[in-house]
């Protein structure tokens, strides 16, 4: 299975996402923001970073870049799309996911090993997790505060679209501790924490041994064994 990773100018964790796909057993495909060609990939990741410097609003300029027209089109037809951190911000700016992401409530960039609860396993990217599973995934962002108006929030909760929730500590003031979302169809998922940094023992967050955490790997495995969408 071929999984594409889009590189925008200012993407930072693109190579990490490619590595995660490889470690999960998929075939990583590098895609360039300026192309109109998804090269026939079976799934797509929009990686972390600071696309175009994130100077206007995070993800805002990337959401209007050439390749995004194809991405939006494909996502609407059911292509699995995962947005990580800046990628989540891009998906929100592109209106593939609801709500918005604003400056962390404490005002600074934060990097920490973050505990999450998997709230929804009926997606292309979470189907190999257990419902309610507690996982530790590195978080690193300056603008990860999830906001939405009351009505949207009610709908997200009512329809069970909240996919990941912060546990123990809410690191950025996100409403309802929301760390990640899915769309109604379940093919598009976005989250602020970085699963691609918890896929290789020795280079992940501390777990039972130093840096041994690999809780993020299941996200990349899920899309390879995607049973949800083929149902």
């Amino acid at each position: 299975m071929r999984v594409g990773v889009i590189t925008f100018p200012g993407s930072l964790d693109d190579r990490d996402a490619l590595r995660a796909v490889r470690l999960a057993g998929g075939e990583p495909v590098s895609l360039w923001h300026d192309d109109h060609d998804l090269q026939g990939v079976d799934a797509l990741i929009i990686p972390g970073g600071f696309s175009y410097g994130d100077y206007l609003r995070c993800g805002a300029i990337a959401a209007h870049s050439p390749i995004m027209r194809e991405v939006i089109d494909a996502a609407n037809k059911g292509l699995p799309v995962l947005g990580i951190c800046n990628g989540f911000q891009v998906l929100v700016e592109a209106h593939l996911l609801d709500g918005g992401l604003i400056r962390n409530d404490h005002g600074t960039f934060i990097r920490r090993d973050q505990k999450l609860r998997v709230e929804n396993v009926d997606t292309a990217w979470t189907n190999t997790y257990e419902l309610g599973q507690e996982i530790t995934i590195p978080l690193k962002n300056g603008e990860g505060g999830f906001i939405a108006d009351d009505e949207t929030l009610k709908r997200l909760e009512g329809e069970g679209l909240v996919t990941f929730r912060y546990l123990d500590v809410n690191p950025n003031g996100s409403l309802n501790d929301i760390a990640g979302l899915r769309n109604a169809r379940g093919n598009v998922v976005g989250l602020m924490p970085h699963p691609e940094h918890a896929v290789e023992a020795g280079f992940g967050p501390d777990a039972d041994r130093m840096q041994s955490g690999t809780d993020g790997l299941a996200m990349f495995v899920s899309v390879l064994t995607d049973t949800v969408l083929s149902k």
């Binding site: 410097g53 100077y55 300029i61 209007h64």
Partner: peptide, 14 residues
Amino acid sequence: DPAGKATARALQRF
């Protein structure tokens, strides 16, 4: 003004 510069580039594309 890095923010202005990046935004100008984006607007110019449209």
